[in-house]
Amino acid sequence: MAALINVPAKARRGDVIEIRTLTSHIMETGFRHTADGKLVPRDIITSFTCRYNGTEIFRADLFPAIAANPYLSFFAVAKESGRFEFEWIGDNGYSSTASASITVE
């Protein structure tokens, strides 16, 4: 399973940068039924967190109304060189992580 992360490689100190993430997940709502009437159990990502050099700067609670392959765009102030770490947590013990580095001048 893949994720697409878009973080600028370089920024000037104080710049406001856009961060975009896209990750593979079916986001099964838990409200759908199969043709023979069985409920398809919910299987979604429930939480997304972004940490910048260890400090949480953005978090999201996701519900079944978020489309499959969740896309998130948000902003951050480029303070220092380092790493952005991303974490997705969901139903059935789902967990995945990714990271991206930035050079701040």
Partner: peptide, 16 residues
């Protein structure tokens, strides 16, 4: 935009 095109997730899997 390749970083917002969800089809690219499958292209990445295919590359692997």
């Amino acid at each position: 935009d390749d970083t917002s095109n969800p089809g690219m997730l499958f292209v990445l899997d295919g590359e692997q």
